[in-house]
């Protein structure tokens, strides 16, 4: 077992039990206590836990609370996708972030980068990044929500989009299929994605495992309009082949 795996196990343990002592961790992980202490040091530096005598206690930060309030399905997969998508963003980028929980998770880490401007219709995203980045632009419209994450939706709001420049657009979708392309279950979302695919230089689709071979109600864009797909699913040989041949990047997640 190596470091990244041990860290995951410690994190899961702490989220479940709130506290952990070194002797329990050494027997679960089957490593020396020196190794466990080094892992705890790293997690303390990342502000995930607080070291106490003989063990550690979970840091109840705002982030952890927000997550449990929103109750995101397939959370582990989505957060890995968000972490990996973050590596595609460079300083001074102007990006669009779409509605949904995966996009929200992406926005949580954007503050780490400098000079980023975000255009979004995802209210949770705008709350998350506002003040910590160069510029935040929230599109207006009627409020709707997906799984507790509110977003604005209005044909008129798309008009204002046409005046703004973004070089990267991150969206999540309801379905991706080799023949049908990317699809959504609501007409509003489909229209939004269609519009974005035409104005953004690159379109990056965040798709967890459940979305593949799934066809939603409305077609949002063809496969050819996608630049990159970030997913946690690794067994899709036909998708790997098709994307490579169509010059589309396929990134599969790992623990960073």
């Amino acid at each position: 077992m190596f470091a990244a795996q041990r860290i995951e196990i410690i994190k899961d343990f702490l989220i479940k039990n709130k506290t952990a002592d070194i002797s329990t961790l050494t027997s679960i992980l089957n490593v020396s206590d020196v190794t466990v202490r080094k892992d705890l040091d790293k997690l303390e530096k990342d502000k995930f836990l607080l070291k106490i005598h003989g063990g550690a206690v979970l840091c109840e930060t705002e982030t952890t609370e927000t997550i449990s309030r929103i109750n995101i399905s397939n959370h582990t997969a989505k957060s890995k996708i968000a972490e990996l998508a973050l590596t595609l963003i460079e300083e001074d980028d102007s990006i669009f972030i779409g509605p949904g929980s995966t996009c929200f998770l992406l926005s949580q880490n954007i503050k780490r980068l400098k000079g980023i401007s975000v255009v979004t219709n995802n209210v949770a995203v705008s709350n998350e990044v506002m003040g910590s980045i160069k510029r935040t632009y929230l599109l207006g419209g009627e409020l709707k929500d997906i799984n507790g994450i509110p977003y604005t939706s209005d044909a008129a709001s798309l008009e204002s989009l046409s005046k703004i420049f973004v070089n990267k657009a991150f969206i999540s979708i309801d379905g991706i299929d080799l023949k049908a392309g990317i699809t959504c279950n609501t007409l509003n979302k489909a229209n939004l994605i269609n519009f974005i695919s035409n104005i953004s230089k690159t379109l990056i689709v965040l798709a967890d495992n459940e979305k593949f071979d799934h066809i939603g109600m409305y077609q949002a864009a063809s496969l050819e309009s996608i630049s990159c797909v970030v997913t946690n699913r690794c067994d899709l040989d036909e998708y790997k082949r098709t994307f490579f041949e169509k010059n589309i990047k396929l990134l599969t997640t790992f623990d960073i």
Binding site: L88, N247, K249, L251
Partner: peptide
Amino acid sequence: YLNRYPKTK
């Protein structure tokens, strides 16, 4: 055809 390569920084 460079976009096909899944390069991350």
